[in-house]
Nucleic acid binder design. Sequence first.
DNA 1: AAAGACCCCTTGCAAATCTAGGTATCAACG
DNA 2: CGTTGATACCTAGATTTGCAAGGGGTCTTT
Lengths: 113, 113
Amino acid sequence: MATELPFKRGAIELLILKTLSWGPMHGYAIAKWIEDTTDDALSVEEGSLYPALHRLENKGLIEPSWGVSENNRQAKFYSLTADGRRALRAETESWALYSAAISKVVNATKQPA
Amino acid sequence: MATELPFKRGAIELLILKTLSWGPMHGYAIAKWIEDTTDDALSVEEGSLYPALHRLENKGLIEPSWGVSENNRQAKFYSLTADGRRALRAETESWALYSAAISKVVNATKQPA
DNA sequence: AAAGACCCCTTGCAAATCTAGGTATCAACG
DNA sequence: CGTTGATACCTAGATTTGCAAGGGGTCTTT
């Protein structure tokens, strides 16, 4: 009974890039891995997944190539491009700053000036 | 020169609720306080701020009343309602779960199964 | 033969942030 | 006294993006 946590802006793309940093993977497996890794706290809907993959491809951050999945089905394997690796670093850093900033407010204990 | 960190979905509302937990405050001051507290890592645009305030008001989470600001100007002071306090608790918890889940993926070091 | 998991996709809605404008008041400065 | 800058509020429109709800097809298991 996972608490359904809707994705915020841009989060899916970051997670996809991170997932692909392990090596080429197809969309369905990417979604599964994210769900597994977060103990189903986050669920990656296909209606969010595939558009996100296409956006990343259009931006030149990932590259597709057809292959055969571990279950013997046709599948599109995506791999990170050099730009994709750069974007992953940038967005990871950005996420760290962002979540730190939010936490700073949420955990504030002092009155405003 | 703060790194511009665009807000994700729903984040502004959480920060506004948190800010108002200190007591009634007007919109302009809320924005300033958030920017100060985060050392300008987050900047609260007025085009995001006021619609967010109106949304919160429509949901019954905050309540406005006109008064005079510390700079001797007419200002709309918002205060948390009981529902607003509940929402603050709920969204704080939700943010903690969400950011933990994202971090779990972003900081993962092991290969997927 | 049927069911269910696997794997891809698109359309269209809804929500929310930001850009770019606008109005008005007050204090301070030249 | 006129102008500038900070204060304080607002909205319209563009853009983005997550998601619900559909669709298609393949492979395995029962």
